[in-house]
Design a protein around this nucleic acid. Structure first.
Lengths: 340, 340
DNA sequence: GAATGTCATGTAATCGATTACATAGGAGTT
DNA sequence: AACTCCTATGTAATCGATTACATGACATTC
């Protein structure tokens, strides 16, 4: 026998009140006599009553759950954000429905349709391309929050870091270590973070009169894979003319690949080449050399995204779009040396 | 305007049939004239009708969602299993509700209560202690599948590998490389996998007359952390009398820590100490030395767990408990050498 | 041609909550 | 005493689907 077979009418009978009163007690209506309230609560306790969510959702026309769309679950960058989202959702009383797309846009748009069916009340998306516009009609109808990535032409709430500034500073950090010939391993996608990081990198080079490096950008074809990082660093480092002394990678996994590739070219990191990562994932400190990187507050990004979602739910007046920019910082470790 | 405001009665009006007929079409009842069926489907298409899940769930007394309980989302071991579970669930038409406990049993049991409220139809648990019995009443009432860990005294469906055999073989592999003084870094928890691995390790040593090594087991206090691996390998290797030449770690992260610790002791891996990991997570090949390890088919474990769950749902006769044991294998890479 | 069976469809009850509206008792006002 | 107002509670409609049961059309059988 399911406990769920205990329903509100059972409670009402035991407490000798109507179902309406029981419902009022459950939902904290203030017009219930304390005495009655106690009686009802005792009955609930005694029967171990738990309200049926489907019935509640049907009546209230909500689901209490948030759709979370992520490219995958295994990349620690995403899983850290997801942890922030999930834990915050739990605390705030929402459920989450985490869906991974494996970068399949059709799947992504199928998931989004759950907003229409009432299966979910809102959605947090973690990987919108900077030129995606299909999301707009949904964002107009439902609460949507974008995480890390967004389309600058669309007026939709989002939470992210200042990727332009982060890359600019990262590049300046390498320059401050007297690197003059710097390469970048970026990614062949159209995320706004990628665009901003490349622009920040270039602008820093230009500011410091290192225009020759501006074209040293290689693009990883499979997003942020180790294999791409390895292959591209070998490509960069095997070009003896260029004499690159530092590589800025737009993810820690690419940096890992770059280090491996450097080693295969017979080069030592950091003595022959310096490598800078991005994200500051846990494993950057689990190896030699520990990887210097740009910290992103992944967990907090998730927390803020979920809080923003709740704010949108609670707001009953006009909502003005919010863009939350969290702080990044450069983490100096062992994969970079200062050239004398 | 929500699309969800289109309801079954709107479709029925447009198609000029009753709601019952529309429902029959949606649910594939065979007693509908093809002609009528087409008319209804056109109406559905035209109105972009999507059935309201809450109403459906209420009426059918199901939720179509599976609770998945994991210690965390960030450990790639779990996130790979989760991927297998989620993708399979999607294909089979179920939703998943992934909850992470951070090893908080109170939270875990709170999550399980969602079975009682009808919020979920079944649960997959990924980290049951070998002496946990609180799960039993739930397993009797609801479909429950255990993943990786289980309680051998409880008759509950589970999917895992043969950890005893895996550890036995792992140890024999080290012995076959002529290691005679072998240590183990295990974990201070009561998972059945841990117990079995330690037993397998010991029995292999005994079989090969290496009884002296049997007490070389150190326990990581914070489950499978890098820090523990580092500290314990330093402890093991700094003991000059013991002359340990190989360490078997019960997780790749511990192995990572062990390698780091060895390096801090001035020892080279694999030339001075060999290190064997467990799990075969992606990053074992992303560093030097690439880590030799025991492969677990994480993704498949997830797939099988979800398939098992579905089998339980579909079974309307008596169910006999199933224990699915998937294949492991040793992956030879660079963190182990054969002693001459 | 009456009885029976099959197919296709409709009517209305039902799932378990929430909530608009109704009602009744008691306090306060005139 | 008659009125209003407030509090506390009950009655019944409602959310949007599914489905048991009813019905009618038509085919088959004897």
């Amino acid at each position: 026998m399911k406990n769920s077979s205990v329903k509100i009418s059972d409670v009402s009978k035991l407490a000798n009140v109507s179902v309406a009163t029981v419902s009022r007690v459950i939902n904290g209506n203030c017009f219930v006599k304390p005495e009655t309230c106690t009686r009802v609560m005792n009955a609930i306790e005694q029967l171990n009553y738990q309200p049926n969510q489907s019935a509640r959702n049907l009546r209230k026309n909500t689901s209490g759950t948030i759709l979370v769309i992520t490219p995958n679950l295994t990349n620690p960058y995403y899983s850290n954000i997801l942890t922030g989202i999930s834990e915050t959702a739990r605390i705030l009383g929402y459920s989450t429905f985490i869906c991974s797309t494996s970068n399949d846009q059709v799947l992504e748009q199928d998931f989004i349709k759950m907003l229409d069916t009432g299966r979910v009340d809102g959605a947090i998306l973690m990987a919108l391309n900077s030129d995606d516009t299909w999301i707009l009609p949904y964002a107009k109808k439902y609460p949507i929050v974008l995480c890390s990535e967004y389309n600058p032409n669309l007026d939709i709430d989002h939470v992210c870091i200042d990727n332009y500034k982060a890359a600019f500073e990262a590049c300046e950090y390498l320059i401050s270590c007297n690197h003059k010939n710097i390469a970048m391993i970026s990614s062949d996608n159209s995320y706004i973070s990628t665009i901003h990081r490349m622009q920040g990198f270039k602008d820093a080079l230009i500011k410091h009169n290192l225009k020759d490096s501006v074209n040293n950008i290689e693009l990883a074809s499979q997003d942020y894979s180790f294999e791409s990082g390895k292959a591209l660093s070998k490509k960069i480092l095997s070009n003896k003319e260029s004499k690159v002394t530092a590589i800025f990678c737009v993810s820690d996994i690419l940096a890992l690949g770059a280090i491996y590739g450097a080693r295969e070219c017979g080069l030592d990191v950091p003595n022959d080449v310096s490598i800078l990562g991005f994200d500051n994932l846990e494993y950057t400190v689990m190896m030699v050399p520990q990887i210097s990187t740009v910290n992103q507050p992944c967990y907090d990004i998730g927390v803020r995204a979920m809080n923003l979602m709740q704010a949108k739910f609670l707001c009953n007046t006009d909502w003005t779009t919010r863009h939350e920019i969290l702080e990044h910082h450069i983490v100096q470790r062992d994969s970079i040396i200062k050239i004398k």
